[in-house]
Design a protein around this nucleic acid. Structure first.
Length: 271
DNA sequence: AGGCGTACCTGAGGGC
DNA sequence: TGCCCTCAGGTACGCC
């Protein structure tokens, strides 16, 4: 799915496009997508509420309502949040749609049907299991080292664990490890202080640059306006098996780690 | 508790 | 053309 930079880009676009709009109704076309409220009447629950703002936490997009409730959206692999003009037909694979009183619509579309949406009550701690925000002030080298201490899991799997750091997915984990010259299989707890520092810097850098370029459209991702990102044009390793490493020229490889494709350079990511 | 494998889905792309 | 296989920005759940 969309990882942190894509969720951030979507949230920014949505904020501009739908803040202030009043919901007339909501249509649920694939019931399993709505985790809560379980009992239908989803539309009735939302009707009359207004979009107060749009935020992001990890890879989740949060649509804040003036009632104090929020719609929390997990886009998973292929989920899209698309703003549609009045009169537009339902966007392909729309599973849930917010219909606004001005005739425009927010479509939550997802071919693979993995994406989920839930309505959370004011103050409900829906993100209790989510880890630290990598671009927030609390994510320091010391915090990263403390989290990695004694972890035997491969560093790549560690980066994908949302309970530790929230928002890093497969693309940015691969890119950050390449940039920090760290081998994806190295146990997290065995990274040296220097490597931890490089990894921390690489994560910040990669995520910030990806946001600047409005995310990575490796295949399906588009923002709230249906527009592709630009970071796929500057990826260094992800999806580039067989091509030369931009740093050392050796051939990049694809292996499987934690059941995920993993792209890296055997030559300059040694430990 | 932590770590690992599997299930959930559809569609695109490559090989034959 | 078409069939069959593999692969895909993720996460929840169950097992050890």
């Amino acid at each position: 799915m969309p990882e942190l930079p894509e969720a951030e880009t979507i949230a920014r676009g949505l904020r501009r496009a739908i803040a202030g709009k009043t919901i007339r109704d909501a249509g649920v076309y694939l019931p399993k997508v709505v985790i809560a409220p379980k009992r239908p009447r989803f539309g009735a629950q939302l009707a009359g509420d207004r979009i107060a703002g749009v935020g992001r936490r990890g890879k989740y997009v949060t649509i804040e309502l003036s009632s104090g409730r929020s719609l929390v959206v997990s886009l998973r692999m292929t989920g899209r949040l698309i703003v549609q003009a009045a009169g537009d037909g339902l966007y392909p694979y729309t599973n849930v749609a917010l219909e606004f009183v001005d005739g425009t619509r927010l479509a939550f579309a997802d071919v693979r049907q993995f994406g989920r949406m839930r309505l959370v009550r004011p103050g409900e701690r829906w993100d209790a299991e989510l880890g630290i925000e990598p671009l927030g002030g609390e994510f320091s080298v010391a915090a990263l080292r403390a989290m990695m201490r004694r972890r035997t899991t491969p560093i790549k799997a560690f980066l994908l664990d949302q309970k530790r750091i929230a928002g890093v997915g497969n693309i940015y984990a691969c890119e950050a490890l390449w940039e920090a010259q760290i081998k994806p299989t190295t146990p997290a707890g065995r990274l040296s202080a220097g490597r931890a520092e490089r990894l921390h810097a690489a994560l910040l850098s990669v995520l910030a640059r990806a946001i600047e370029m409005r995310g990575t459209s490796a295949r399906d991702y588009v923002d709230a306006e249906g527009i592709a990102g630009g970071f796929q044009n500057v990826l260094t390793v992800y999806g580039r098996a067989g091509e030369p490493c931009p740093r050392c020229g050796k051939e990049l490889v694809r292996t499987v780690l934690a059941q995920r494709g993993t792209w890296w350079c055997r030559s300059c990511q040694r430990t």
